[in-house]
């Protein structure tokens, strides 16, 4: 729709999947969340069962579009469209979600980290449709953080950072970190090797953000790459600090 509205694309055939049965379900089962492609973004954001196991989906999802567009926009649509600022692309990547796609011939399931290839570019073949996203359960003692910068209130993200940290025995036992608009696609950076076994304090966080020195984010009319690198540092600090604080609350 957005690309047709901008007259960039004029597909010969448009298939309305709104009435396809079985694509609009949400289920929460033992901490795993399955979201049908037709689920509206607003439904996902306001779903209490989802928020209870993956609070990040509510937090980051509420940045997707605006209240009105979230009622129209679907989870599957956002993922398949893969806008460079799509918060849902970042969260599926961070949470290690899998994306199920199918064609008339076959069905396959991809890791989110393999799905997003670049701005509006995905591993989806021309004859494939996103049908479902599966979020695995978060281990006990997990906390999330999400921070975004935009030129105006809840505008398209100039940059965003999402982080999750799991605490076991008082130290970090696993961690994940994804940056939005730091690279052509959501950028998942290994942070576990730096943080596991440690208390995530300011020094640990500084250690992590030092790895961003060589980051080369895209430049466009909204921001320079240098600005996005600075934002990545700031937003990462805040996301990691929040994730650690939330994880401490989860184990308290």
């Amino acid at each position: 729709m957005p690309r047709m509205r901008l007259r960039v694309e004029k597909p010969a055939t448009i298939i309305d999947i709104n009435r396809v049965v079985g694509l609009d379900g949400i289920s929460v089962d033992a901490g795993a969340v399955t979201v049908g492609a037709l689920v509206r973004q607003q439904t996902l954001v306001t779903h209490d069962g989802v928020a209870a196991v993956h609070p990040l989906l509510r937090e980051a999802g509420s940045y997707a579009g605006f209240h009105t567009t979230r009622h129209r926009g679907t989870v599957g649509g956002s993922i398949a469209f893969a806008a460079p600022w799509a918060e849902l692309a970042a969260t599926t990547t961070l949470l290690g979600a899998t994306i199920t796609v199918r064609s008339t011939k076959a069905q396959r399931t991809l890791a989110a980290s393999d799905f997003f290839l670049g701005p509006n570019q995905t591993a989806l073949a021309a004859d494939e449709l996103v049908t479902e996203v599966q979020f695995p359960p978060a281990p006990a003692g997990t906390g999330f953080g999400f921070h975004e910068a935009s030129p105006r209130y809840r505008d398209y993200a100039t940059a965003a950072a999402a982080a999750s940290i799991t605490i076991a025995d008082g130290v970090c036992s696993s961690a994940a970190w994804v940056l939005l608009r730091a690279a052509p696609a959501p950028l998942s950076i290994d942070v576990a090797s730096t943080l596991v076994g440690r208390v995530v304090d300011d020094a640990a966080i500084e250690n992590v953000v030092q790895s961003l020195a060589g980051l080369d984010p895209p430049t466009d009319i909204e921001a320079s790459g240098a600005h996005r690198r600075r934002l990545a540092v700031t937003l990462t600090r805040r996301a990691l600090a929040d994730a650690w604080a939330n994880a401490q609350e989860a184990v308290a």
Binding site: P151, R152, Y153, R154, D155, Y156, I221, E222
Partner: peptide
């Protein structure tokens, strides 16, 4: 002109 629409020509919204 590179920001010829209101997506990129930023006017303050009511929230700003």
């Amino acid at each position: 002109v590179l920001n010829e629409n209101f997506k990129h020509y930023h006017l303050p919204s009511s929230m700003d």
